[in-house]
Design a protein around this nucleic acid. Structure first.
Lengths: 138, 138
DNA sequence: ACAAACCCTATTTAATTTATAGGGTTTGTT
DNA sequence: AACAAACCCTATAAATTAAATAGGGTTTGT
């Protein structure tokens, strides 16, 4: 399951996408829209900013704004940033690979094989769907 | 990511599948094969038994054994039993549905829509792949 | 009778996630 | 220049969940 962090990030990005004609949007405004903690959301937006997905303006009249076109923000990127691996097993993760401690021999592991298929089908969607696709539905 | 419980369950089932010509297999034997705690595995096997996937024999000379054909144990069933929902969001889970607390309106949520797609593709694999498919690879 | 091996429930420990805290820095306005 | 609004940053605490352990109970073959 996606963590709250990731869910909040996706919601916040969606909100910013909907308000991209406005120069900036306040953290507080987004937090209120979804009924989530201002401070928790602040940390998340900061992380999105550091990752180059958002811009911000400090001081009075400041706030956050998208610095990319929604179509250029794939959902896989957001999930990986906040949650880490998308795969169901560390041993099939493309970005966060780790061997499974209990695995006797990864080279002939049937569980591994199935989870590679799941990973590939999942990525086929999440790498090709972007913030734009979410916005189109709302 | 799958929990260790689920991973251990899948490995144990695989091991039992490989030894299905033997009447019973000891917990201890499986635990040693994968280097996992006897007691932890015991709890897991018990859960699999209660769910009707395994049979057991008590007392001296006892142990566990499969009571179904490997092809009749879909992976989705094992995962749901030990880990719960397969979906990435509670609001798209078929077996463990719950609304997302922060969601303003599920009826027009773009995140929901994408995650339904991911769920469907994932289930297409996990409901159709069985223990038999894992065994074939090993 | 005895020991092997599963059965059952509860508790503890560890890890992770979620949330809070609190001051720092920048910037527009007066 | 003063002030307040608003983001920046790091650390810590609280809550939840996952993982592991504990310990006795019951069944069964020899």
């Amino acid at each position: 399951m996606l963590s709250k962090k990731t869910k909040y990030a996706l919601h916040a990005l969606t909100y910013l996408g909907k308000h991209k004609d406005e120069k900036t949007v306040l953290i507080q405004e987004i937090a209120e829209e979804y009924g989530i903690s201002h401070k928790f959301l602040e940390n998340i937006l900061l992380e999105l900013k550091k990752a180059g997905m958002l811009g911000s303006k400090k001081g009075k009249g400041g706030g956050y704004y998208l610095i990319k076109e929604p179509k250029d923000i794939p959902l896989s990127r957001v999930i990986r940033l906040l949650d880490g691996p998308i795969a169901m097993l560390p041993c099939v993760s493309l970005n966060y690979y780790e061997p499974c401690a209990e695995c006797v021999n990864e080279a002939v592991c049937g569980i591994n094989r199935v989870m590679i298929q799941v990973r590939d089908e999942t990525l086929k969607i999440l790498e090709n769907k972007s913030l734009e696709d979410i916005l189109k539905e709302e």
